[in-house]
């Protein structure tokens, strides 16, 4: 930029202090003698001043209490549950271990109760009832030595579990007394 030629882009950079020192000095010299460039710089300054003042007032009028609370409440909802994870991970590991260990080492137990009477026999002094579970194919034989009335029979069915004398697990191929 020389004394006779105005460069508005260079002038804008001059206004923003974005020129190298040498160039800055040259533009500065030009501006001293150029009325239109001086006017343009003053316009830029006013524009900046009015914009900043207007924005400053808008910011000052804005209430941020709400914002702070809104942000914090959302953060609480999204807070990483570090404490819970610390508990959940070992708990899950423990459950997995229990599942792995007990089916291998623990006693095998029947998993389902009898669902149907396969057969029943009633004599003068004794009665026999054979039950079988549908999926595990376990058989329960219920033997009763004394003949009792229907009411008493129901009562016995509810309370006298000692009369169960045996069962067999056909799938596993083993037999023995089991309490239901």
């Amino acid at each position: 930029m020389n004394k006779s030629k105005c460069d508005p882009i260079l002038l804008s950079q001059f206004f923003d202090h974005e020129l190298e020192p040498e160039e800055y000095d040259r533009v500065s010299e030009h501006v001293r003698d150029c009325l239109s460039c001086r006017k343009s710089l003053l316009d830029n300054q006013s524009l900046s001043g009015f914009f900043r003042a207007g924005l400053g007032k808008t910011v000052a009028r804005t209430r941020f209490d709400n914002l702070e609370e809104r942000v914090l409440s959302q953060v609480r909802n999204r807070k990483p549950q570090i404490g819970n994870w610390k508990f959940l991970i070992p708990a899950a590991a423990m459950v997995a271990i229990l599942f792995l260990v007990f089916p291998l080492t623990g006693p095998r137990v029947s998993v389902s109760g009898p669902s149907a009477i396969v057969e029943s026999l009633t004599g003068d002094t004794s009665s026999v009832m054979i039950l079988e579970t549908p999926e595990s194919r376990q058989t329960i034989i219920w033997f009763n030595e004394t003949l009792i009335s229907e009411d008493e029979k129901n009562e016995v069915q509810e309370t006298d579990h000692t009369s169960i004398i045996g069962c067999s697990d056909r799938r596993a191929g083993r037999a023995g007394p089991v309490r239901t």
């Binding site: 910011v59 804005t62 941020f64 914002l67 702070e68 914090l72 807070k79 990483p80 570090i82």
Partner: peptide
């Protein structure tokens, strides 16, 4: 995950970012 630190961050920068 310190909530108090986050509150300070919000207070420090909210008007500027706005």
């Amino acid at each position: 995950g310190d909530e108090e630190a986050f509150r300070i961050l919000v207070q420090q920068y909210q008007s500027r970012l706005f």
